[in-house]
Amino acid sequence: MLKCTFCGRRAAYNRRYAGVLLCDRCLIKSVEKRFRRAIAEHKLLLPGERVAVAVSGGKDSVAAMHLLVEYCRLKNCELVTITIDEGIKGYRDQSIGVARDNAKSLGIEHFVVSFKRIFGATLDQMARRARARKTELNPCTYCGVMRRSLLNQAARELEADKLVTAHNLDDEVQAIMLNYVRADFSRLHRLGPAYSPREGFVPRIKPLREIPEKEVALYALLRGLEVHLAVCPYVGGIHTEIRDFLNLLEANHPNSKFMILRMFDRLKPQLARIVPEFEMRRCKSCGEPTSAIICKSCELLKGLGLRRLRKTLISPKSS
């Protein structure tokens, strides 16, 4: 049996990048500390703010919700939960119940916004249409763009000051690498602990950004939280390859993920000078903020022969 570097109890995790072993209690404490430190260091939340957290029911978002509850109680913040139901059969239908159960047990208001209700089609239906119409776009593109837009709008309608997403270290480093590979400057420079572009956008914050995925998972498991641990049927392609590559790198060279993150954070201020400024307008079709005439969501919908059914997301009954 191997012992915790800090307290001598049985170790549950080998934090190789730091050269320490952690027991269940010390791991939980460490994750909570890093979460609070990220908020303080980057001023992610201010006392008394209204906070919306995006919760899918997966380990990261459920952990974020539980971490936030304690933080918000201390800082007099109000917390609400938003779940986007993309309509992925056998996956999201199961995780929504987990999100709902967690919100209920914590006494947090919970709102579900579904693709079907707003766009008239589930992601499964969009994926079929995309294939039939040979749009050459994969389901993750539709899902990512539309979910982000709905989350922002829902948070704005709920009058949230901040929108929390549960991106962990692995998610962030994968996004950095993906944008390098695609040479996508504008997406790259939007990454970071907080992103608050301008009017119409609720500032998005990522308090788990410096916590490795495995530590978030361990936090949820060791605390005995109810989480949905399943793989999205649509994951694949370059995203998976980058993820696997980074995990191989980290296994063979511990600390690689943090080094990639630190390097990016140092480069980021320079990027602002390269990325062109853009004018913010309102989408002609749905009214959401965009830099183009019509927003990306509406453009994708049009390509699928669909159109948005509702402008407003949160009705008094959707909670």
Binding site: A11, Y13, N14, P212, E213, K214, L221, E250, A251
Partner: peptide
């Protein structure tokens, strides 16, 4: 890859070493 899994040994989460 240890980065992608958690291991339980006889019901307890333990380190891979």
């Amino acid at each position: 890859n240890r980065e992608t899994i958690v291991v339980r040994r006889n019901g307890k989460i333990v380190v891979e070493e």
